[in-house]
Amino acid sequence: MNRYTETIQTLAAKLLETGDVKTVLGFKRGTFPLTTEPFLATTPADTGELYWDVNCRLNLATYLKKEMGKVAVVAKGCDTRNILVHITENRIKREDVVIIGVPCTGMIEVKKATEMAGGDILYATEQGEEMILTTAGEEIRVPKAQLLRQNCALCAHPNPVIYDMLVADPVPVQTGMDRYADIREIDAKTSDAKWAFFDEAFSACTRCYACRNACPLCYCPTCFVDESRPQWVGKGTDPVDVRTYHMLRAIHCAGRCTECGACESACPMDVPVRLLTRKMEKTVGDRWGLEAGLTLDARPAQDIFCLDDPEEFIL
């Protein structure tokens, strides 16, 4: 059992024993290799199921609900930023949530691991900076860095920004990485090429809404795509409807998205939905110098303004 899992279990058990919380929301081992599942521990005995490894890609903020009463939640850096957004948006009260912060070294991407292993992985273990991937035929060692999800590889806030307890000392924060090389690459294309690029990239989308369901920010009781009066965006896989959905979702998340990557990890079709949310993230940073989920003192970027926001594009 890894050290993180051990600490999470101990902290969770203590919280439940003392009655500080009614529930601990964490991860447990998934049914399949390289997966985890969200898990609600309600008794100290349950806490033995709690688990942590490089496959905790979900953002548990998605499952936080007011009705849970006082709850503890296991959260990575990006997840804590999201919880912070939730607090500013009245989703949950700070005093109702105990944040078990996890200084995060990054989550891996299953697709990359499978490709690297050259077959179905039976199980995978983390050993220092390396991952040991076991397939039916062999066992290979790969530097974990090569398997990281893009958002983890580019992560600027691996440590929880808001927490009540930490499962380990903060991890080093990387600096100097180029977060938006791919975005700039698309920016440089002609309009037609951009259109064609995304036409291809989004062609696989089946509108299953796994991305929306995984996203903690998509908590609207009725999503705009499901509105019927007026129903202005079709529900099928018409490319214009698909594009409308992803663009508007990105706008809705702009200034709030913390790049947890849950949307893309959840996508069964490998649609690069984060290209749009990251374009928005870049815009929010470039134009207004803001990053989502770093302070409880201000509302997200679209809910505020500065008198001298740049406006060179306005005639």
Partner: peptide, 13 residues
């Protein structure tokens, strides 16, 4: 408008 313009142009409008 800032966000809208950016996302539309990014998408090839």
């Amino acid at each position: 408008f800032t966000l809208l313009k950016e996302i539309l142009e990014f998408n090839g409008i």
